[in-house]
Design a protein around this nucleic acid. Structure first.
Length: 588
RNA sequence: GCGCUCGUAGCUCAGUGGAUAGAGCCCCCGCCUUCUAAGCGGGUUGUCGUUGGUUCGAAUCCAACCGAGCGCGCCA
């Protein structure tokens, strides 16, 4: 990565200049140097604005600092290796690098050497991260909002793995408490009704329609086996069966969406294992809880919350917060270096309570990162489709996946930043044209594959019906691949700065080369969606190149060089798509 | 009322301290005897919600206000 090496050069220049006392009171470089890509071509290929940032602390004008740094860079013995054609200092204090084409050859060769690992980093250093997400109640179908959490969590996990963390993914099953009791009564009533018994359906229960498709197979399997149980026994038995059925359906659906968990953590297990009662004892021992009006309260106000919160109601039943505190204590005990919890934004009111409970247990609250995902608005034929789980107009995640396909579902749920609401246009997602970015990116990948096929497969000329021999044999292509890795000069024939194709190639190579940077920024910002935008930019750069330049030509050395560029592009697209979990098709 | 998130082109959204704020859609005009035209090129589009402040420099940081969504229970 050329930008990384240039950053190193600039940092070394700052270190040397400060040691020589050339930068006023500055003793060392106070921050990491960021290399950026200037918008205007006359500002060079890459640039640093470091001098502007140093101006305050050095108590010197930015332009003066830039001039000093430029001198040090030019004196640096390593600078000669970096294909710097020339350096320019520009007001108000930028240092612009104009590069020789050699860097492009090195960049492409590097991509071929790294292959599927190109872009991967080791900023995680093997640290263990637990990502908890979806965590829906097993009381019905997943809706598109769950889908967003699912896709975001899975993309973030992919991204964390790619940058060197050891990631585990967990689904917290909210299978305890009143909603499960309620499910039981609904399930038992429906079980009886489906077999012709005229029993009333619970009035404020889950919508009958939303449970029907789960109950029908259950009725088929068990028949009238439980028909004569009394109301409470029946609710308990059918509740358990239905819960298991729904969980299994959720698991299968998520798996189809490419979302797979290492563990499904049951809330009930926290109660049966006494984890909840022991966390209450922990609070008591640390004098972080008190009794009032018959209830047990967490002193969350003194830990940054706006009020104290109830852990155990005066009825003796523990609250959701108590279970969540026990759950998070369990996570800490499992020894992760970092905990990421992804919740729907409608749960943001719980964040201070959970944070307070973690602090109350003297755990490191900084390890726990809670990320909130905003709402998904579904759009069909220009009409907003509002989702309401209870109102019967439910648009389930499954329905969306079936209508637009898994790839488009993932793309649109992955693309946006979690803190912004998504307007998911079902019609756009189905469209097979440039308007649909998911399609456009996949098309670019398939186009690369098509070119490679064309090079090594014989073609039948449409008009003359004559079979034409392939330009290359499969063996030759394999030899080329070896050359791409070992001999960067293999690409030289493609890069003639005088040629009109050059600027398009350069833009494409710059895009490809910046992938590791993009990965790093996406990981640090927890925005895997950037990979989607990045892939789109790569696809766009490829299309522009493709439009002005043939890959397979009469000149074998040019063909070889450009095929190498196409292969590199295909690889980078595949790597980026893999992070967002969208397939990279060979044909479309 | 309080808290969280958001406010950028007609629409959907990038950009979170640096050079002249970017994409796609929409609209208009060009481009197919050649590897996928499911494409490419060109053109039009902005009080970066408002007002102040910090800074050499603010869409970006701070404050107040306006607007939208969500949340404020001994619910889960």
């Amino acid at each position: 990565m050329i930008s990384e090496r240039l950053a190193g050069l600039v940092e070394r220049a700052i270190d040397r200049a400060t040691k020589d006392g050339k930068l006023g009171p500055l003793k060392e470089c106070p921050f990491a140097v960021v290399v950026e890509r200037p918008r205007l071509p006359e500002h060079g290929d890459l640039a640093v604005g470091t001098a502007l940032k140093l101006a305050g602390q050095a108590k010197m004008s930015p332009i003066k600092i830039a001039e000093i740094l430029a001198e040090y860079i030019e004196k640096d013995e390593e600078a000669g290796k970096e294909n710097i054609e020339r350096l320019a200092v520009a007001p108000p204090g930028f240092i612009n690098f104009h590069l020789a084409t050699g860097w492009m050859e090195a960049a492409l060769s590097n991509i071929h050497n790294k292959g599927a690992a190109f872009g991967s980093l080791n900023i995680g250093d093997g640290k263990r991260v637990l990502v908890e997400y979806v965590s829906a109640n097993p009381t019905g179908d997943l809706h598109i909002g769950h889908g967003r959490g699912a896709v975001y969590g899975s993309c973030l996990s992919n991204l964390f793995s790619f940058v060197g963390f050891s990631v585990e993914q967990e689904f917290y099953v909210n299978d305890a408490g009143v909603q499960i009791v309620q499910l039981g009564y609904c399930a038992f009533a429906l079980y009886q009704r489906l077999q012709g018994r005229d029993v009333p359906y619970p009035e404020d229960g889950y919508p009958e329609e939303s449970l029907k498709h789960f109950m029908e197979p259950i009725v088929k399997e068990y028949g009238d086996k439980y028909l004569n149980l009394d109301k409470d026994e029946g609710a308990k038995t059918l509740g358990e069966i239905t819960k298991m059925t729904i969980m299994e359906s959720q698991r299968k659906l998520l798996s189809r969406l490419g979302v797979n968990f290492n563990t499904w953590f049951s809330e009930t297990s926290l109660h049966t294992s006494d984890a909840v009662s022991s966390v209450l004892q922990e609070f008591e021992k640390r004098e972080k809880s008190y009794e009032s009006e018959g209830a047990l309260w967490l002193k969350s106000k003194e830990l940054g919350d706006e009020r104290d919160r109830v852990l155990r109601k005066s009825t003796g039943v523990t609250t959701y917060l108590a279970a969540d505190a026990a759950y998070h204590l369990d996570k800490y005990k499992r020894g992760y270096d970092q905990l990421v919890t992804i919740w729907g934004a409608d749960h943001h009111g719980q964040v201070p309570g959970l944070k307070a409970s973690v602090k109350a247990l003297d755990l490191d609250a900084d390890k726990l990162e809670i990320i909130l995902t905003q709402i998904v608005n579904l759009n069909r034929e220009g009409q907003m489709v509002r989702m309401s789980k209870r109102a019967g107009t439910v648009v389930t995640l499954e329905e969306v996946m079936e209508e637009v396909g898994v790839d488009a579902t993932r793309y649109y749920l992955a693309e946006s930043n979690p803190q912004n609401p998504i307007n998911f246009d079902l019609e756009l997602a189905k469209r097979t044209s440039r308007e649909n970015p998911a399609f456009y990116i996949q098309y670019a990948h398939a186009r690369c594959a098509a070119i490679l096929r064309r090079a090594t497969e014989e073609q039948v000329n449409q008009e003359s019906e004559v079979t034409e021999k392939p330009v290359l044999s499969a063996e030759q292509l394999e030899q080329y691949k070896t050359d791409y890795r070992a001999k960067p000069e293999s690409f030289r024939a493609a890069f003639d700065p005088g040629h009109e194709v050059f600027q398009y190639q350069k833009e494409l190579v710059q895009k490809l080369d910046s992938f590791p940077d993009e990965v790093k920024e996406a990981a640090l910002a927890r925005l895997p969606g950037r990979m989607a935008r990045y892939a789109y930019d790569v696809a766009n750069a490829l299309q522009k190149f493709y439009e002005v330049s043939r890959v397979i030509t009469d000149d074998l050395s040019v063909t070889k060089a450009r095929l190498g560029l196409i292969l590199a592009t295909k690889q980078v697209l595949a790597n980026a798509l893999k992070i967002i979990g969208v397939s990279a098709p060979e044909r479309m």
